[in-house]
Amino acid sequence: MKYKNIKYTFLSLLAVVALVSCSDDDDNTPIVVTETCDDGIMNGDETGVDCGGSCTPCEEAMAPDFTGTYAQVDFMGRPGINTVLSADGTIKDAHNVSIPSEMAATFQADFEARLEAYHDVYANILGADPAAVNYENNILGLDAPTLTGYLAADVLEVAPNLPTTYFLPGEDVDMDGNVLNDPAVIGLTGRTPQDDVIDVSLILLFGGADGIRFSGQDTDGDGVADLPRLTSDGVGQTATVGTTFPYLGAPE
């Protein structure tokens, strides 16, 4: 520790006080100022501001501080999972401070209930019994508990040695009612900025076994759609994506 009496500073302070005729607390108690390694000025035996001499060497002091504990506040794996399948703010917040190994057990039931609630929205609009309009096994052949359990374990898979395809449904070549193990199916190998992840998600959630269960069909041929359009949001990419690093386009 280093001390010094800053007599001249004190005298000049008194002069300032006298000049501005300030408050009346300018008593005459002697002031002793402590030089420290964090007072923001170069003093004592320091060779730089608050470094060198008996303080931390200047080279070390200039290095950024990376110490401390950091606690998780937000989380993301696959796009849209928390947004679409968590029913309310409480579940969304809980999802953001959870870890993937515990997510399926924690969130699967909530996600399945949410998936059914979306179907009830359209049952009501169509004038049907909500209990009769339910999720139908999708193009992967997954039932509601399996699909929501898979999505609840919210990680983005990326294959190191395969082309990236978020999901591209193929044909049911082996005629087993789903495309899951058919050779034409590729996907789940990553996500590029160009992938239309919303349409893929909508197809898996509302498309049923053929992927087009609710896609604005005119079932009675009167020229007016009788089923809602739920398997595509109708938009393509508007942003610029390049072919070289950093890929994402310059800000607009």
Partner: peptide
């Protein structure tokens, strides 16, 4: 992954000091 292909399983978090 669900198709039996070799993948890294990845996710991102933000963490506050």
């Amino acid at each position: 992954n669900a198709l039996g292909l070799e993948v890294y399983k990845t996710w991102v978090t933000t963490n506050v000091k």
